[in-house]
Lab assay of single mutants.
Amino acid sequence: MATGGRRGAAAAPLLVAVAALLLGAAGHLYPGEVCPGMDIRNNLTRLHELENCSVIEGHLQILLMFKTRPEDFRDLSFPKLIMITDYLLLFRVYGLESLKDLFPNLTVIRGSRLFFNYALVIFEMVHLKELGLYNLMNITRGSVRIEKNNELCYLATIDWSRILDSVEDNYIVLNKDDNEECGDICPGTAKGKTNCPATVINGQFVERCWTHSHCQKVCPTICKSHGCTAEGLCCHSECLGNCSQPDDPTKCVACRNFYLDGRCVETCPPPYYHFQDWRCVNFSFCQDLHHKCKNSRRQGCHQYVIHNNKCIPECPSGYTMNSSNLLCTPCLGPCPKVCHLLEGEKTIDSVTSAQELRGCTVINGSLIINIRGGNNLAAELEANLGLIEEISGYLKIRRSYALVSLSFFRKLRLIRGETLEIGNYSFYALDNQNLRQLWDWSKHNLTITQGKLFFHYNPKLCLSEIHKMEEVSGTKGRQERNDIALKTNGDQASCENELLKFSYIRTSFDKI
Rank of each mutant, 00 (worst) to 15 (best):
L326N: 13
P36E: 14
M38C: 03
P336D: 07
L88P: 00
L136P: 00
C328I: 00
L44T: 12
N175L: 12
P330N: 09
K80T: 08
A190K: 06
C328F: 01
T320R: 09
Q276S: 12
F285V: 04
N242L: 11
C293F: 06
I82D: 04
T199W: 11
H307F: 08
G183M: 05
S225L: 08
H28S: 05
G132S: 13
T157L: 11
F275P: 00
L152Y: 01
R256Y: 07
G32Q: 15
G188W: 09
T199I: 06
I122C: 06
M65I: 04
I158K: 04
F78W: 02
P187C: 02
E51H: 12
T229N: 14
P249W: 02
V108F: 02
N43C: 01
V218Y: 06
C311R: 00
D277F: 04
T140P: 07
N175A: 13
I222Y: 08
F115T: 04
Y273K: 05
R110L: 09
Q299I: 11
V108Y: 04
S324V: 15
S244L: 07
L81C: 01
H274V: 12
S237M: 05
N135M: 15
S98L: 01
V121M: 08
E231K: 05
I146M: 08
R162P: 10
D75Q: 09
L102I: 14
T221R: 05
I222G: 11
E33R: 15
C315H: 02
T194S: 10
D165M: 12
S54V: 14
T320C: 14
L289R: 12
Q216R: 12
E231N: 03
L131N: 04
E97Q: 14
Q299S: 04
K191T: 15
G203K: 07
W160A: 02
T329W: 06
T250E: 04
A198Q: 02
D75E: 13
Y30K: 02
G111C: 02
D184V: 15
R145C: 10
D177H: 15
P316A: 03
D247K: 08
S166V: 11
C335I: 03
P31K: 09
E49Y: 06
C53K: 00
C315R: 01
T199P: 08
P104G: 01
G318W: 08
K193R: 15
R141T: 04
P31Q: 11
I158R: 06
F283D: 05
I82F: 09
C228Y: 03
R162C: 14
A198S: 10
C209G: 06
G241Y: 02
Q299E: 15
P334R: 12
L155Q: 12
L128S: 01
G58L: 00
C223T: 01
P31Y: 09
T329G: 11
P270Q: 04
H212Y: 14
C293Y: 02
Q61E: 02
P316T: 01
D184C: 15
M38N: 09
Q276E: 15
T157F: 05
G333K: 03
G142I: 02
S237V: 04
E57G: 03
E57H: 13
H127V: 05
H307Q: 04
C186V: 04
T211E: 15
N257W: 03
G183R: 07
R162F: 08
I306H: 02
P197S: 11
K217Y: 05
C243V: 00
Y304E: 01
Q216A: 15
P270T: 02
L76H: 05
G58H: 00
N150Y: 06
L60R: 00
I163A: 01
H59N: 07
I146K: 00
T140M: 08
K80M: 08
I158V: 07
L326S: 04
R69I: 07
V206F: 15
I40Q: 02
G183T: 06
C280G: 00
Q216M: 15
D165C: 14
E97Y: 08
V200R: 11
T329R: 13
L289F: 10
K67M: 09
G58K: 00
F103V: 03
L289E: 11
V55S: 02
K224S: 10
A190Q: 14
H59Y: 10
S317T: 13
H236Q: 02
Q287H: 06
R297G: 10
Y259A: 12
C235K: 00
S98H: 04
R46Q: 04
L81M: 09
F66V: 12
N322W: 06
L114G: 01
D75R: 03
V167C: 14
R279P: 00
G318S: 07
T250H: 04
V218E: 09
H226Q: 08
C196K: 02
I84M: 01
M321T: 09
E33Q: 10
R145I: 06
I306G: 04
W278V: 03
R162M: 08
D165S: 09
N202E: 08
P249A: 06
S237I: 09
R263K: 01
P79H: 06
F258W: 08
C53Y: 02
T320W: 09
R46L: 07
N179M: 06
R41A: 15
N43T: 07
H291P: 02
P187Q: 03
P330F: 09
I222F: 08
L64R: 05
P187G: 14
Y94P: 13
I109T: 00
Q287S: 15
E97P: 04
H28E: 08
L63M: 09
V305W: 03
Q303F: 10
D184M: 05
T140K: 14
S77F: 14
P197Q: 12
E130F: 12
C280Y: 00
M137I: 03
E238R: 04
P271G: 08
K191D: 02
V93P: 00
N195K: 11
D277V: 03
C153L: 02
V265Q: 01
C186F: 10
D184H: 07
M65A: 13
F116A: 11
C315E: 00
I82H: 06
N202V: 04
P187L: 12
T250L: 10
F66H: 15
C35S: 00
G227C: 09
E147V: 10
P104V: 02
Q61L: 07
H290S: 08
L64T: 09
L152C: 10
L88N: 01
K224V: 08
I201T: 05
T211Q: 02
T45M: 08
W210V: 05
N309V: 03
F205Q: 06
K294G: 13
D178H: 14
G262V: 02
L136K: 01
I222T: 05
Y272G: 01
I158H: 06
S98D: 03
M137G: 11
R69V: 08
E51V: 09
M65L: 06
N135C: 05
F91Y: 14
L96V: 10
P104C: 01
M83P: 00
V126G: 15
D277H: 14
V173E: 13
T194L: 15
I82N: 06
L44S: 09
L136H: 01
P271N: 02
D184W: 14
H226Y: 15
D72F: 07
C228Q: 03
N295V: 03
L332C: 08
K292P: 03
V34P: 06
C235N: 01
L174R: 13
G32R: 13
